[in-house]
Simulated assay, not measured.
Amino acid sequence: MGVTIKNVAKEAGVAASTVSRVISDSPQISDATKRKVRKVMEDMGFYINQNARNLVQQSTKTIGIVMKNSISESLNDPFFPEVLRGISAWCHKQDFSISLTTGDSNEEIFEDTVKMVQGKRVDGIIVLYSKQDDKVVPYLTECGFPFVVIGRPLTNAGEITYIDNDNVKAARDAAEYLIDMGHERLGFIGGSLEFEVNKYRLQGFKEAVLLNNLKLAEDYIKNPKTAESVRQAVYELMDMDNPPTGLVVTDDLIALNALIVLREKNIKVPDHVSIISFNNTQLTNFTNPTLTSVDTQIFQLGYESARCLIEEIKDPSQFKKQIIIPTIIVERKSTLPLNSRENI
């Protein structure tokens, strides 16, 4: 016969109701008592029927993750495995699982979200992006369903819990890093401006150029949406009569594509053009040259989003939080002062 709650209670010297409250992690039980009872449970080989516990609590102990793109496309971007690692780290501590949207299109991803909510498959949701004309965040807001956004929501930001970097400041710092190296002709290669992160990084870039009394040339600014359009953007920038000597690129994956095109054109980095990118993913140490990159602390973005969401699930009366994760520039081999570079 298996070990029962009564057996555990007798061994621990507490009431059976106390053991039940420990199992449900009741705040009415002190941490010392919880530790004692859990130690007895472990020693006696008593294992919680998690499914039964969740049914009683009307909880799935699962967090839904809404991907930016199809799961195959997202997981090819080194940002997403790292942010999922951060989310998983906190979920593991809280005995939560995660469930990912699997749709290939925006509509399918939205449908996955609706199924998660209406099917009561998850207790809360983390949205891994913020963008214009998004259906997911308005739907979750209207439902009153617990959720957190990674990225600053473009509307009603004060009423939503979100985790983000100060992307305006981060991009301003990145541009000024090149300006301080003597670069005055700066180019910008971003991504689709429907996404908050690209919009604010472009804003920061423009601010740095204007604050340093440099010319803000719109033809030095490119916002490609695909790998092929990144290629086109690099060709257009570097084929100009006065090409930029420094490039601010909004993420490491785009920067990798840019490096490939520059190599094809026999343009040396950083001897002919310096590049600074964003996110400081694992790619930065494997490119040639290694990439100077703004560390956005991706793991921490995920970790804090999971922490905030699970806190809200446990206590829905909490105030909405807006948490800004600091950034720092990690210098590598893709940048060089202007007076140190080779002449083209």
Score class of each variant (00 low, 15 high):
L75V: 06
V3A: 02
E108K: 12
K169T: 15
G204T: 05
L216N: 03
G182N: 09
S20Y: 09
S72M: 12
K93F: 14
D95K: 05
R201G: 03
V249C: 12
K68I: 04
G144V: 02
F299E: 08
Q94V: 14
I125W: 02
R172V: 05
N285C: 13
Q118E: 15
R121Y: 06
I150C: 03
S30K: 08
G158H: 10
T327E: 01
F79M: 02
V249G: 04
I179S: 08
A217F: 07
L100S: 04
D173M: 13
F286T: 15
L202Q: 05
V19G: 01
L237M: 10
C308F: 10
G2M: 09
D95R: 08
E82I: 11
G158I: 04
T101L: 00
T281Y: 12
S20P: 07
L256I: 11
K215I: 09
K314D: 11
G45D: 09
I65C: 00
M116H: 03
T141C: 02
I29N: 07
R121S: 07
Y235E: 06
D134T: 02
K169L: 15
D252F: 08
F278W: 09
L202F: 14
Q50E: 15
T102L: 09
I298G: 03
N343C: 10
N280T: 09
M181N: 02
M41N: 00
K135R: 15
N156I: 05
E184P: 12
M238G: 04
D31S: 14
G302E: 01
G64S: 02
G2S: 12
E342F: 08
F79W: 15
D219S: 11
G64Y: 00
R152V: 13
L291K: 04
K321R: 11
M1P: 05
H92E: 14
E142I: 00
G124W: 08
K6E: 13
A227E: 14
V248N: 05
R85T: 13
G302Q: 07
K268S: 15
N156F: 15
S72C: 07
L309R: 01
V148W: 01
V248M: 13
A255C: 06
N280V: 08
A175G: 04
G119S: 09
T327P: 00
